[in-house]
Design a protein around this nucleic acid. Structure first.
Ligand SMILES: [Mn+2]
Ligand SMILES: [Mn+2]
Ligand SMILES: [Zn+2]
Ligand SMILES: [Zn+2]
Lengths: 151, 151
DNA sequence: CTTGTATTGAAAATGATTTTCAATTACAAT
DNA sequence: ATTGTAATTGAAAATCATTTTCAATACAAG
């Protein structure tokens, strides 16, 4: 699905949820649909003002909250900030984050059921959720500095 | 190792690191050694004042920071708070948290190497760290209410 | 004991998030 | 298209968590 279509889908979903479609919201939705990094409120604010000058930080907070309620974005915890937001992936996915540039990718295929079962029976806990994230360095950030100068 | 011995070991380590052993620090160390929940600064402050009235919140922040530097405690991220601290476990362990009462246990035995390798080769990332946490309900919190009244 | 310095807690400063509120705007109903 | 109304907006103020500053205190080495 192309970004433009996703943007209208999100706006439609907002409207279906009884919200009005406004310029500030459109700007924030475009940002969150298009980014490949997890963004914090201030980043969304700064980037958003490029698109919609006069955008208020309060509106950023409120819109992110609403998008999270609708399940379109999710809060991401990073070592250097716990109020980052990222487009929700389809299905059961986990995050792989570049600790150098912040690039985020997702991956699937974790089979934690055996371990979950073992831990549950060992401890007596009823386990119903897990957090899994991988951290590393993305292909671009692994390139030597010499390569970077050739842009 | 008994709690008392662990407390003196932590205090010794503090001293070896060039720190002085003071009443506020002792109170906080006792708390962190003894707890089975991840505690935030305010909780440590409140609980600590029972032991050492007049304890200052600033001292709590500073002491937790120091203990983290020494690797004795670790920051824990939870859905409802990202500045919780918990005694560091030995070896490679992960956390299992009760979402009802906050009880924390650890578990080992996650074998994520195959998955890590696959994701690394799929994405080109160099993966060097992972976060894994299980959430659930502990044995006590699973008991029906009727059982709880029998104390 | 004396001394030098790390540590303490109160208060002030900072920074992030939330609340309040009057003005504006989207949009459903005419 | 016009209107009415409730949702939304952004500025400012309030709140909350964390950090900094600083003068007084207390640890521990000698
Ligand atoms: Mn999973
Ligand atoms: Mn592991
Ligand atoms: Zn967090
Ligand atoms: Zn529990």
């Amino acid at each position: 699905m192309t970004p433009t279509i996703t943007v209208s889908r999100w706006l439609d979903l907002l409207q279906s949820a009884g919200c009005r479609v406004t310029a500030p919201r459109r700007a924030i939705v475009e940002l969150m649909v298009g980014t490949s990094r997890a963004l914090g409120p201030i980043e969304v604010f700064d980037l958003g003002r490029a698109e919609h000058p006069g955008l208020g930080l309060v509106t950023v907070y409120r819109t992110l909250e609403k998008l999270e309620e609708l399940g379109l974005i999710e809060r991401v915890h990073l070592p250097d900030g716990c109020h980052r937001y990222l487009r929700t992936a389809d299905g059961h996915q986990h995050l792989l984050l570049c600790t150098t540039c912040g690039l985020v990718q997702t991956f699937a295929g974790d089979d934690l059921d055996p371990l979950t079962g073992k831990v549950a029976s060992d401890t007596g806990f009823a386990i119903n959720e897990h957090w899994l994230q991988f951290f590393g360095t993305c292909p671009d950030c692994r390139k030597p500095i010499s390569t970077l100068s050739e842009s």
